[in-house]
Design a binder for these strands. Structure first.
Lengths: 124, 124
DNA sequence: CAACAATACTTTACACTGTATAGTATACTC
DNA sequence: GAGTATACTATACAGTGTAAAGTATTGTTG
């Protein structure tokens, strides 16, 4: 099973994280697990991927963090969506729909794409 | 009408170009026009976007270029898909389907994403 | 109880890709 | 003959996913 390449995924990991946080606060390690589980066989994100993205989302004020002692006695850094993050998620969803539409239109059918019809067997 | 941001588009412009070239050779200026037309209101690529991408595709041996005198007397640089490019396009299509699936699973429904149920009103 | 795996976060650095910008030159149109 | 559309070149930048190496703590297993 081929994995999703960086280029394909580019720009979407942030959105995926925001989407996970939409349903409630969570922490880095759990977010990775969650994403990999929900899209099993497709997504295989590592921790090295998620943490730097979380930091950037925090810098951009889309999410906020708070340390908290979990039931099992460990310290976890919980992230939650804040107002700017909600807006960003909404925007990103719209952008995703637009991209889907565009990709569908171009990738979908592949006839009549050229202004000038090609001469059969012509060496160009 | 909001435009597609770089982040959303990231990794897909190459695929879009390959898809256009799939139906026959074309040149930079025409490819831009074609893409913007086919996804009108969504894509608004500039020439500054397309040319550097074409150069990179050429470096990566996915496409090949040949200068050619057009009917109107102008010199145009025609690009065509070569074998490595066909394979890349096939791969990218598959990647796109995978991404669609993954985004759908995560963005689509937003319940039960958390391992631990949230306490109502809890300040985390 | 020692050893190992799983959990959990930090920091740094890199490569890839879209894109803006500025520049050059030719054909077409009014 | 002036302006617009066509057409390509070259450079440089910023954002984003991701690998890598490191530090601790908790749980498990022999």
């Amino acid at each position: 099973m081929t994995r999703l390449s960086k280029q394909t995924l580019d720009g979407n990991v942030e959105t995926l994280i925001l989407a996970v946080l939409e349903s409630g606060p969570s922490y880095g390690y759990a977010i990775v697990k969650e994403l990999n589980e929900r899209a099993e066989g497709i997504l295989q994100l590592g921790e090295g991927t998620i943490y730097p993205v979380l930091y950037r989302l925090e810098e951009k004020k889309l999410i906020a963090a708070r340390w908290r002692l979990a039931e099992n006695g460990r310290q976890r850094k919980y992230y939650r969506l804040i107002s700017k993050g909600h807006k960003a998620l909404a925007t990103n969803r719209r952008q995703w729909q637009m991209l889907s539409a565009a990709m569908g239109k171009v990738l979908g059918s592949a006839e009549n794409l050229l202004p000038q019809p090609q001469v059969k067997g012509a060496t160009i």
